[in-house]
C-alpha cells in the first residue's frame, strides 16, 4: 500500500487514533489505553502486518513522555510510526508490546532504564544498563552531579 492508501486504511481502522503523515513516515498517535490493542491489530491484520519493530524509544516532552515505535512490514514493505503519550510525565505508565514483538522486551527495558517509563504486564522489567538507585538520565530534569551535561 502506498502512503495515502495506508493512511486512509489506518484512519478507518483506528477511529480513536490520530493518523497523519509525518515528515518522513506515516504517524499514528494512539491513546495509552488503546496501545496494546492497536499493536496487536497492526501486526495481526494481513493488510497491515507490521511484523518488524525497528526501533522503540521514548522522548521526554515537557507535558508527557512519548513512546515511539518505528514499524515496518516485511511483506508489504511499508512503514509507520506509532506514538503514544503517557498520562503522567513523572510516573509514566504504558502497556507493554513485548508480547506482540519480542524484541520490544529489551527495548522497553532500555526505555525504562533511561526514562523511567513503566511498562504494564512486562514480564521482566528491570534496569538494563544502570544501577537501581541511579536516576533516569534521559529525562530533562536529570541532574548529573559528576559530569554536568547540560543543554
Amino acid at each position: 500500500m502506498i502512503n495515502e492508501e495506508l493512511q486512509a486504511y489506518l484512519a478507518g481502522k483506528f477511529s480513536n487514533a490520530e493518523v497523519k503523515p509525518g515528515k518522513q513516515y506515516l504517524e499514528i498517535l494512539v491513546q495509552a489505553a488503546d496501545l496494546h490493542e492497536t499493536a496487536v491489530q497492526l501486526k495481526g491484520v494481513p493488510e497491515l502486518s507490521f511484523d518488524y519493530l525497528i526501533c522503540l524509544t521514548g522522548v521526554d516532552y515537557p507535558e508527557s513522555m512519548q513512546i515511539v515505535y518505528h514499524l515496518e512490514s516485511v511483506k508489504h514493505r511499508h512503514m509507520v510510526v506509532l506514538k503514544v503519550n503517557t498520562a503522567d510525565r513523572v510516573d509514566p505508565k504504558v502497556d507493554t508490546v513485548s508480547d506482540v514483538w519480542q524484541t520490544a522486551k529489551y527495548h522497553e527495558r532500555e526505555v525504562y532504564d533511561l526514562l523511567g517509563v513503566k511498562f504494564n504486564h512486562h514480564t521482566d522489567l528491570r534496569r538494563l544498563f544502570l544501577d537501581d538507585d541511579y536516576g533516569f538520565p534521559l529525562r530533562k530534569d536529570f541532574k548529573d552531579e559528576v559530569r554536568i551535561v547540560e543543554r
Binding site: L114, F129, L130, D144, V149, E150, R151
Partner: peptide, 13 residues
C-alpha cells in the same frame, strides 16, 4: 551496561 557511556544523553548537549 558495563561500558554504557550515555552517548544519547551527551548528544543532547
Amino acid at each position: 551496561g558495563y561500558i554504557h557511556s550515555g552517548i544519547e544523553k551527551m548528544c543532547e548537549a
